[in-house]
Simulated assay, not measured.
Amino acid sequence: MAPVREDARSGPRHVASVCHFCHDAAVPPPRRRATITDVAAAAGVAASTVSRAFTRPGRVNHATQARIMEVAAELGYAPNPAARALESGRTNTLALVVPDVTNPYFAGVIKGAERATATAGLTLVIADAQENPATEEQIVTRLGPAVDGFVLTASRLPDDALRRAAELNAVVLVNRAAPGLACIVSDFDTGARQIVDHLASLGHRALVYLGGPAESWSGARRWAGLRAAAQQAGMGATRFGPYTPTFASGPAAADAVLAAGATAVVAHNDILAIGVMTRLADRGVVVPDQVSVVGFDDIFGSDFCHPPLTTLAERTEDAGARAVETLVALGPAGRADRDVAPRVLPTQLVVRRSSGLAVS
């Protein structure tokens, strides 16, 4: 409540509270950002020389270059990115597009890409395609003139759309392959065999795969690997779905598994697998005593759920970093090349308590 001051003529009246520290302190005006002209004047050179010192340092005398950089640091000058882009034709900015920024799988890709971008002295912008191919294509079209290239992670775009994008910007794919485009992919064939061998060793004679989005390249590769490995091991393999790779899709997927009487389930990703386990627990089904559950990705938190999830780990940070390094090597003029070979990163099965002996 505001303090009350007694006035001899008019009686008590309220006075607004004032913070004397804030009231008395002088607020300094915002400092004007130093310009290239300021640096040139202080260094005793032409503005064009300052410009070359930042954009083409090899064309400036060593001593002059050092003096310009010293003065720029003292004045707090930094080149205007937009102006540099107009002059050089490069924005020094890369774009990373992911299908769902809330999916923990992509946190590793983002972290690796950000680290590699910073090392290269570039800026990274991140866009969320919302699991929608049309949205992804709009992002690529809209950001194209503003960036030097794209890292498209788990892209849902068809091959022809990816090639159109690569004709305008350098493009590198993560967990997606398309003819002629540089890509970083996980070894799902070996990983799928690890999963099947693990379940077979526990006595399971068949598995159900809960498939992800129909447009998911990695989902198709996972299923192809599981089906081939199961056939070699003499196991049955059935695919259900597609399911949205979210926790909310778990109940419907779990109900389908129970209706089929499956003893072993492999989910498209860990989030879906955790949603399945939650639904099974709600229905009184014990994991892994009655149903074994395996996921893909080894996301943060997959070892915190109950029971901890058996899952195929991928090198997501490594994938993000390698993708940016490849994009930088391509340069903004990178174009599709039919001789490009995918870079395959290893996978490893992490066995936890969600998988166990088959029901006899």
Rank of each mutant, 00 (worst) to 15 (best):
N61Q: 15
T102F: 02
A267F: 13
H198W: 08
R322I: 02
V350S: 04
P251F: 08
L94G: 01
P245A: 03
D339M: 08
P245S: 03
E6M: 12
V293S: 02
V174M: 01
I36R: 13
A264V: 13
A341G: 00
A341E: 15
G334S: 02
A248K: 02
R56W: 15
V265Y: 07
A46M: 03
D128Y: 10
R335I: 10
E215S: 03
P288T: 13
L162D: 05
E70Q: 15
L280W: 07
W217A: 11
M235W: 03
I274D: 05
M277L: 05
V15R: 09
E314C: 04
F188N: 14
T244A: 02
L173E: 05
A321L: 05
R205W: 09
I271A: 10
P81H: 01
T102S: 09
T311A: 04
D38L: 00
E317N: 03
H204Q: 10
R90S: 00
P145H: 02
F240I: 06
G89Y: 00
V60S: 01
A341R: 15
N169V: 00
T316S: 11
P332Y: 00
A319S: 13
R315S: 03
E74Y: 03
V98M: 03
A323S: 04
D270M: 13
G191Q: 07
L210Y: 07
K111V: 11
A178L: 01
T91E: 00
R115G: 01
L349C: 02
R5D: 01
S155G: 10
A333P: 00
A73S: 15
F54A: 03
G234V: 07
A73E: 14
R90D: 00
V27K: 15
V45I: 07
A34N: 08
L272Y: 06
G320Q: 06
T263S: 14
H204G: 08
D337P: 01
P213E: 06
L157R: 06
A73K: 12
G191F: 08
G144N: 05
A358P: 05
A161M: 10
E137T: 07
G180E: 12
V101D: 00
T119D: 13
L327E: 06
A206E: 14
V287T: 14
G191P: 04
A34S: 12
L199D: 11
I195G: 03
A259T: 13
V208L: 13
R279I: 10
R335G: 14
P145W: 09
D7I: 05
G261D: 13
N132Q: 02
A220K: 12
V140I: 04
M277V: 14
A95W: 08
G250D: 04
G58L: 12
H23E: 10
A63L: 15
A178K: 08
R239L: 02
L181H: 12
N169E: 01
V276F: 03
E6H: 11
M1A: 07
T153E: 10
N169Y: 00
V265I: 10
A134H: 08
V286F: 06
R67N: 13
S249A: 10
L280Y: 09
T278E: 11
R283I: 09
A53D: 12
A63T: 15
T119S: 14
C183M: 06
T135S: 04
S292K: 08
R31S: 09
A40C: 06
V98G: 03
I110R: 13
A260E: 15
A78D: 05
